[in-house]
Design a protein around this nucleic acid. Structure first.
Length: 579
DNA sequence: GCCGTTTTCGGCCCGACTGTTTTCAGTCG
């Protein structure tokens, strides 16, 4: 799959076009197409082979032709021509904060800057500050940004971002001038990682809020601070942007700062088509504000139904909103249980009883205990006899327990040789079987795909755990042919997990969308290793919502009776195959 | 360059902040 590579080439083309001073709408088309390609779940090279490139949103004849040329020859003649005219160094510089196309060209052409290190030297020598329309402060600011960027990882995992945001919101709410206060931006859209944190406040006294904000104890540095907007960096090196509006504009500002940008552009186009103007202060008919206090009101004024933040990525939700609909997607309240959890018998921290107690408090109807099978030595994997002893304990618990039904399970290892780490007979005795890959991540795509497909087709397996094995910010996961894996899951009815662990979120949103398109069953599980981790469910649900997963395709939205029946039918098949 | 509640051609979102200016260009979101 070369989608990321193709997207990056299209983005470079857009950057060069911008430097070259081309029409901004044309440039926007290239960036738009790059984003579509990046999130496309099928390999774009397959579409190219079948002459179907124009099925990608935002790809027409011209961009489609360039993609085809790139895939055939490894080059794009238009890109080569631009590269001859404009130094590639300008592209590098333009992607630094504080530098846009104008300054990038100024630095490369007037000062012959080729690298970021060159630029640092030019700033230190005073050459940059001497350029027209630059000056001391701008030069110093750019230098600061370069140094700050060097010590920082690009994006924050959402779990970390969430806690930073909650801390800032808690501190801000102590200020009396603050009326409403909430995180917006990609954090509110529940993206798996965020670039910076956006906080929105409504207040009748913006000045007082701004004063309080830039003095918060968690803040290390103020990057910019105006009357209604400020950017700061926390001690944890996270950028936080604050925006203050009046209560009458809160809904419009919330809509605006939640984004995504593409979603907003669509809404503004609709507004202008109706003779209105949409900005962060409201929906305007002339200078009369006809909506703005609530987000719902803003959508309503534009003749649209409100859309959940998770789907606001301009991937079809605006078109639904026009028709008066919202995507039918799973919600946290729909979840009735968790089908993947560990205890201290393998690598968890708590006992079966403690996990069950936590599930009861969560209001669940069922909880599957799925400790590791023996191959996973690092996780103190259990032998079949040890697992049987655990299952006996669980059955005794079920006899006396009211409320939560505990399911006897296992997380069985998928070995390198495609075999499972437990006997077929043992698997057929379990209530539920999760099969996962925990070893040999470096095998090639064909081999990993075959490994997963073998597990999916195994009659004793109900769910594939964390199907791609990725760890956000740590490793990419093993390479698989996602289409082939999804097809196998659709064919056999085996569910694929959406791991709610914030560093996994695996499957991710794009893959979920592709799974949903094929009718693949999903299971949103926490893979809890501690009783408190059952609460991670909301991250998994948020990811499933971003992937437009409907309740009907999420296994653990079933009631206790339904899940028992579903699993029993699969068990029956497993036993037939053993016999 | 793409695309359609208008539109197969003519549109294509809008405002805040900074710094260098002295009325606004550049950048960002």
């Amino acid at each position: 799959m070369r989608n990321a590579e193709i997207a990056s080439v299209l983005n470079e083309l857009a950057d060069l076009m911008e430097l070259h001073g081309e029409d901004r709408y044309r440039i926007a088309r290239y960036r738009n197409a790059a984003a579509s390609v990046e999130h496309y779940t099928e390999p774009v090279e397959d579409l190219a082979r079948e002459g179907r490139l124009q099925e990608i949103r935002g790809v027409g004849e011209s961009i489609g032709g360039k993609i085809a040329q790139y895939l055939e020859t490894g080059r794009i003649s238009a890109l080569d021509a631009l590269r001859r005219k404009i130094s590639p160094a300008a592209v590098t510089l333009m992607n630094l904060p504080g530098i846009g196309p104008k300054r990038a060209l100024l630095f490369t052409e007037r000062l012959n800057v080729k690298t970021i290190a060159d630029l640092e030297r030019a700033i230190e020598s005073g050459e940059v500050a001497a350029l027209p329309r630059v000056g001391e402060k701008t030069a110093a600011h750019i230098l600061e940004e370069i140094r700050r960027l060097r010590g920082r990882s690009a994006r924050l995992p959402r779990g970390v971002a969430r806690s930073v945001a909650e801390e800032v919101v808690r501190e801000l709410k102590r200020c009396k001038a603050v009326r409403q206060c909430t995180p917006a931006g990609s954090l509110r859209r529940m993206k798996e990682s965020v670039g910076d944190i956006d906080i929105l406040v409504s207040s009748a006294e913006p000045g007082a809020v701004m004063d309080a904000f830039v003095r918060l104890p968690s803040i290390r540095e103020v990057l910019a601070a105006g009357e209604t907007r400020a950017s700061v960096v926390t001690h944890a090196d996270v950028q936080v942007d604050l925006r203050v509006v009046s209560p009458a504009s809160y809904g419009a500002a919330l809509q605006y700062f939640t984004g995504s940008k593409a979603h907003n552009v669509k809404l503004r186009t609709i507004a202008s088509g109706m003779g209105y103007k949409l900005n962060e202060y409201g929906v305007w008919e002339g200078d009369r504000r006809i909506a703005g206090r609530t987000e719902e009101g803003v959508y309503r004024a534009l003749g649209l139904t409100w859309q959940p933040p998770e789907v606001r990525e301009d991937t079809g939700e605006v078109e639904l909103a026009i028709k008066g609909r919202t995507p039918s997607i799973v919600a946290l309240d729909d979840i009735h249980g968790d089908l993947h959890a560990h205890t201290r018998l393998s690598d968890g921290a708590d006992t079966v009883e403690e996990m069950v107690h936590a599930a009861t408090r969560a209001g669940y109807a069922y909880l599957a205990i799925t400790d590791h099978s023996q191959a996973l030595g690092v996780a103190r994997g259990l032998t079949e006899d040890e697992l049987r002893a655990e299952h006996a304990l669980i059955r005794r618990l079920n006899e006396t327990a009211k409320g939560v039904r505990v399911l006897c399970g296992v997380e069985v290892d998928i070995r390198v040789n495609r075999k499972l780490d437990c006997s077929d007979a043992f698997l057929s005795e379990c209530d539920v079987v999760v099969a996962s890959i925990h070893s040999a991540f470096q095998r090639g795509r064909a081999e990993q795909t075959a490994r997963l497909v073998a597990a999916i087709e195994h009659p004793g397996v109900d769910i594939i755990g964390h199907p791609t094995g990725r760890m956000l910010g740590k490793r990419l996961g093993y390479e698989i042919d996602l289409g082939a894996v999804l097809d196998a899951a659709a064919r056999t009815g085996t569910a694929l997990e959406v791991s709610a662990q914030p560093e996994r979120l695996d499957l991710n949103d794009d893959a979920i969308r592709a799974a949903v398109a094929r009718g693949v069953m999903l299971a949103i599980n926490t893979d809890a290793h501690h009783r408190d981790q059952l609460a991670l469910m909301r991250f998994g649900v948020a990811t499933a919502r971003r992937g437009w997963a409907p309740r009907q395709l999420v296994l653990n939205t079933k009631s206790r009776d339904q899940i028992v029946r579903w699993l029993r039918e699969r068990r029956a098949r497993a036993r037939v195959s053993v016999a």
